[in-house]
Design a protein around this nucleic acid. Structure first.
Lengths: 247, 247
DNA sequence: TTCTCTGTTTGATCCAGGTCAAACAGGGTC
DNA sequence: GACCCTGTTTGACCTGGATCAAACAGAGAA
């Protein structure tokens, strides 16, 4: 409940709202014209800082808003009564958190910052209101939700039908692609999550993740130094995904 | 492409639209008042019959509408280039198919009828139009999408963190609960899918599914005769889910 | 500098579920 | 009736990834 009681921080100078944000094309404003984005600005007036390891929200909390990541990154997870954790996703800047809460008016998973981060608070009732007036916003919001569903299907495929090394390859390629979309190098990046979190996401134990990294390094596919990753052979990784085995 | 070329069948007497449908409370009309449902009726004028094993839509096809299942049931799946299939869900009456297509304007999975079925066609552009006017419809539609996301997270938990028998127990309990919501017996039902399809959904091989069924039968939890299932001990199945092992 | 704490790597062993194979059961057709 | 054909069950064996265990590496703190 600690996370819940954190008071949202209203940032003083509001000039850096959606209309000024360089994440527009990855986020909710995509497809809106200038006047529409200005209307969205009014909605997204408050922001909140979340320190590393802190919760943005917890399973069970009342749902009131969705969040757009402005800086930093998060993981979402579900925890069973017996303590088993399943990481359901890793989110980067421009991505939307909290969509799980709409269905029951309560969040159904936890969102935890992987590094010091900041999110834009989008009150959901107001978003629905505005998206009744702004067609482009409505449509973009539906696309964001649908994209999450498609992403989830991909994860099911990964968990249900791929072997350990394929899963890790898919994960690395996905990260690479998302870093690229944000203007970073496709080949070199820093992972914010632990081996254990990667393992939970991929349905593997941390040792298996570590071994797969070592294997990739031996095979010259990547260079790994702790959390720093350099992908040396993207086609090689892709090949590995499609050709599960020599058998 | 066969599935795509099937001409939608307009049913003659339109009196059995949403306003007359007994699936209202499970479907898109939930929460709408009578006059609002009448407006929805105009939208959902056409239906389509899909025979067992036929596709409602295929991955890659242009997205134009979502579908509400009126009778019968479906599976959705994703297929990799190398032929591996991952079943991403089983859908029953009142549930909505096609949400995956919104994000890219093309379907990203296949939907196949598990028995002779009928769906209501809901043209998506018109749905967005109407939900800009009808607040309750907008909200219900958002809940439907969110519910799909929550469901997907549950499947990830299942695939990533549960053992074979837990997965099957979770599956049976889920089916039971959904049959109950439709006015059928919680304890006795007929599975429309094969062991292989169940296995694909649960990330297991068909033999493992079969063995788990046999084990449950030995332990007096269920009685299994081919596709006909009778659950004898619901608490027992639940217990099995939360206490993975005696270890 | 050393100590501690958390996360990572690597090795040795084990087992749940996969694989291969064969028998079986029910439903449809001739 | 006999004959498929598809889906299911069961058995025997194998293996990928889990488990257990120990060493190691970097980041802070004192």
């Amino acid at each position: 409940m600690k996370g819940a009681s954190v008071v949202p921080i209203t940032v003083a100078g509001l000039k850096s709202a959606c209309s000024q944000c360089n994440l527009q094309e990855l986020c909710l404003p995509f497809g809106l014209d200038d006047s529409e984005i200005n209307r969205l600005d009014e909605l997204v007036a408050t922001r909140r800082k979340v320190k590393r390891q802190q919760h943005l929200y917890r399973a069970g909390e009342a749902f009131e808003a969705i969040y757009a990541i402005r800086t930093g990154s998060f993981k979402t997870d579900v925890i069973l009564e017996d303590g088993r954790e399943q990481v359901t996703g890793f989110q980067m800047t421009g991505e939307i958190l909290g969509l799980d809460g709409i269905s029951s008016e309560h969040h159904s998973c936890n969102a935890v910052a992987l590094e010091d981060s900041e999110v834009c608070i989008i009150p959901f009732a107001k978003l629905e209101e505005l998206s009744r007036e702004v067609e482009a916003l409505q449509h973009q919001f539906h696309k964001v939700m649908s994209r999450e569903i498609v992403r989830d299907h991909g994860v099911m495929m990964l968990l249900g039908s791929m072997r350990a090394e394929e899963r890790l390859a898919a994960f690395l390629l996905n990260m690479s692609q998302r870093f690229t979309a944000r203007g970073f190098s496709p080949a070199e990046f820093h992972l914010r999550m632990t081996r254990e979190e990667i393992g939970s996401y991929l349905g593997l134990k941390l040792e298996t993740v570590s071994r797969a990294f070592s294997r990739f390094q031996e095979d010259g596919l990547v260079s790994v130094q702790q959390k720093h990753i350099r992908i040396l052979d993207i086609p090689g990784l892709k090949k590995l995904m499609h050709h599960p085995q020599v058998t």
